[in-house]
Design a protein around this nucleic acid. Structure first.
Lengths: 334, 334
DNA sequence: TTGCATATCCAAAACGTTTTGGGTATGATT
DNA sequence: AATCATACCCAAAACGTTTTGGATATGCAA
């Protein structure tokens, strides 16, 4: 039904070879015929088939964005959406398309996501939202398919990653609190299976030691990155260590929950307890008091992952570990 | 490089026709050879090429999700992310892939998005985040390409739409406030180019008239759906109509901004001024006071748009207007 | 034995491109 | 006049599938 290169050739009175050459700017076609071909193509509204071209060129210009548990990722949009935008835009910059994949749907189709990508002849895949204990982890690591993980620190012959330097980020946050004179600084972390949690804990501890303080295990509580988790963990923390004067939360959502709980307990933020979050979600600016937080460059993470993948694809670069810096956003909660 | 149907045929000692038939469950292949072919295919790790199949079958099983200004859509993730998840999951259910498109990147590639979709032989496209005055609007409406708009009420021979019943939603909100005894109810709307704004205003006015109240133009202020806009608009509203006892905001973000501003002005929510938002974003549950709001079924909107598109594609159904109901979520702000 | 239905298989065309390896004029150089 | 370079053009193969229209063999009825 759609108009093909044959139609153009027939109407323009040339061979399909010539049409192809005219379209792709080869120099063995006279200016006259080139113009005529292009004119005819425009009149017929000809659009070359990406599918046919993919088949003959053996490259699809298509990469997958694999999101773990896309549909059931509570609060995920605060982080994933911007990363996705970065991935998409930068792929477009290179002339690549982005196909969205989810582990859940892959699972229910009963094919590994690698098979899924192979069938579609995807040139690579970017993975995000996955935990270290995810069953798909090994598959990502072992795959021949060029891939880049976001917040998923796997280095293998075909798999690189990009993530925020969470150690540095957490150190920033704790140093900021130390500079404000705090000594008893609580840390409410995300779940331990998240790789970022490990690093943030490490950064928290390092910053304390750096200041000559001892690391008190009672000051650290694990939670789930969400508002309610932040609330509950705050109660736990305050019973274990009632003397904290500052709390560092591993996500803004938990920090918002924490502030809410602190308020309930009659503690004033930042007067009685200072609060720092992590992520810089848009609403952090508008809660009361406005949230001091560590900003991740989400959009840039998406872009960087594409850059790495393109390097692997087009310049045979080896996969790397790419760490992006983060920066403090100081507002009223400290 | 990847293993093809030829390889399987050669190793199994049959023709490629037989391999194809074995794979697609045709009955003119003996059980013996079928098993052998499948066995060989598994050993070679054969994956049929989706590309080649698309070419010969003339259908790609691919639809585009066109997001207007994907990267520069502030606060967009609160709504778009869930819709996207619904679209993706439901497409997967039908065996379709989802390719993400953005008007901005399409624009900078200097091709209309229709051409973009035609080149890729997409079977349809779902459009979201677009305003009525968007330059791409006409293109969507006139296109031969089967399409479904989300919150974009265009009906044409090849274009249907799904949206929340915003009239009903706004009426719910206002009725709720009326039931609480409020008479002077302000309305802070989004920008007028958003179609949802028109409907929500309509619903607001209808509910008031229904209650025998006059519609006072001083009670309506237009803003931009965002937190800061909500703040500013609240000030404007309160200078024009200092006697309001309730405000209905056309987005949760504006409602959050509004509550913040009200607090600053010494008004207590809900005691002095009751507040209702729209959207049911996740954080509405956690602000203080927790936000009463109108919940849109975002995920379902995505699913519904896919269902409609599939109906058009596979059963030649005509594009329709699909309205989803919304429901009140009553919390502490009223 | 012949004819015929059935079961099983396959060669070749088709899908819409790109690329290879030429071919035929034309004009300039010997 | 013969040779050669150049400019322009094209037929055919290839990419990896599906589908069409048989072909061959087997078993059974006439």
């Amino acid at each position: 039904m759609p108009v093909t290169i044959k139609d153009v050739a027939r109407v323009a009175g040339v061979s399909i070879t010539t049409v192809s050459h005219a379209f792709n700017g080869h120099d063995d076609v006279s200016a006259d015929t080139r113009d005529r071909v292009l004119q005819v193509a425009k009149e017929l509204n000809y659009r070359p088939s990406h599918v046919a071209r993919s088949l003959v060129l053996q490259q699809t210009h298509n990469v997958g964005l694999l999101v773990s548990d896309f549909n059931t990722n509570p609060g995920g949009h605060h982080f994933l959406f911007d990363v996705m935008a970065g991935v998409h835009d930068q792929l477009a910059e290179f002339g690549y398309d982005m196909t969205l994949l989810s582990t859940t749907t892959a699972m229910q189709r009963l094919v590994s996501y690698i098979d899924f990508c192979t069938e579609r002849r995807m040139e690579g895949v970017i993975v995000m939202g996955m935990r270290m204990n995810d069953p798909y982890m090994r598959e990502v690591a072992d795959a021949k398919l060029p891939s880049v993980g976001i917040d998923l620190p796997i280095l293998s012959p075909h798999c690189g990653y990009v993530m925020t330097d969470n150690i540095q980020g957490a150190m920033h946050a704790v140093r900021h609190l130390l500079a404000k004179g705090h000594q008893r600084i609580g840390f409410i972390n995300g779940h331990a299976e998240a790789v970022v949690s490990v690093d943030r804990l490490h950064g928290y501890q390092t910053a304390l030691r750096e200041a000559g303080l001892k690391v008190d295990p009672d000051l650290v509580v694990h939670s789930n990155f969400l508002v309610q988790g932040g609330e509950e963990a705050t109660t736990v923390l305050l019973t274990k260590a009632p003397d904290v004067t500052a709390i560092f939360y591993a996500s803004d959502l938990m920090a918002i929950g924490g502030m809410r709980r602190l308020l309930r307990m009659g503690k004033r933020v930042p007067h009685d307890v200072a609060v720092v979050g992590y992520d810089n979600i848009d609403l952090g600016e508008w809660v009361v008091p406005a949230l001091t937080t560590v900003a991740q460059r989400r959009y840039d993470m998406g872009k960087a992952s594409v850059d790495m993948l393109m390097g692997m694809l087009r310049r045979q670069e080896r996969p790397r570990a790419c760490l992006l810096t983060s920066e403090m956003v100081v507002r009223q909660s400290t």
